[in-house]
Design a protein around this nucleic acid. Structure first.
Lengths: 142, 142
DNA sequence: GTCCATAATGAGAATCAGAATCAACGCGCC
DNA sequence: GGCGCGTTGATTCTGATTCTCATTATGGAC
């Protein structure tokens, strides 16, 4: 039987208030900062559970950390992620789904699953980067 | 200046003789088994260099390990990977490239890059799995 | 061929994310 | 309210990867 604990709820809520992907470690710090006495192991367990139940998406950061984010349950989708601020947009990819299955079948593969994530700079961060371009770091003047 | 050492060459060669993705750890063991005295740190450095130079592809396994594989340099491509035996097929994905850029642009994102990998069971492993189905592990007989 | 500066190496320590352990706690059912 | 057992959290452990630093050996100059 699955029990409903405030810790699990706190993790779910903390995840929901975040618009981008967060690591288990930083989610734990955040919860501790809000006065919660939740343990790190519990955060890991709760996140793993949420991911299994389809209430959270997970992906690996460049550094190999697992990052999590609340998502629409029971629906397969992909992400468009700002590599600067972490802003995440859920995108549908029916075309890519079909393509992935076709490619797999063409090569004799069965039980195809796929990882499709798009990284970029969101409009805000693009604007900021453009502003920074006004005073770029000078190249070696030699 | 980049120097040419036999260690770096050994890593490149070991990577090339492998048809699937291998972890740094197992590549190191393999090299030691062949009598090489190469160090683990060196294997990591060599793999990181190869990845930067585009001579190797890397991805994260389920367990968070970094896996590497020799690849055609200077060419963007994706992978169809057998989740049982690790067999890897390079696939082209022009359609997906275009789709990724369009989706990014539609959402105001710039500098789009993407991660597209397809996992499945290769023909061989599918056949093996089917054979195993003949004598499945019995469910609880109660 | 020899010399030299320095990039690269390798053994081991350090670091870090995450999993495992286990006694204590507390939720849900009776 | 009592009980059983699922959950928690402090701690320890593990395993991958990175860092450190003395040593080695490459490649260019001569």
């Amino acid at each position: 039987m699955k029990r409903n604990t405030w810790q699990r709820e706190a993790v779910r809520e903390a995840l929901g208030t975040n618009e981008g992907f967060v690591s288990a470690q930083s989610l734990h710090s955040t919860l501790r900062e809000t006065g919660s006495s939740i343990g790190l192991a519990t955060v890991y367990r709760a996140l793993a559970d949420l991911a299994v139940e389809g209430e959270a998406d997970s992906l690996q950061s460049d550094q190999g950390e697992s990052l999590y984010r609340a998502c629409t349950p029971g629906q397969h989708h992909h992400h468009l992620i700002c590599r600067n601020c972490g802003l995440t947009v859920e995108i549908e990819a029916d075309a890519v789904e079909a393509w992935a299955h076709r490619v797999a079948a063409d090569n004799g593969f069965t039980q195809a699953s796929h990882v499709v994530d798009v990284f970029g700079l969101c409009a805000t961060c693009t604007a900021q980067a453009a502003a920074a371009q006004v005073a770029p770091a000078p190249a070696s003047p030699l």
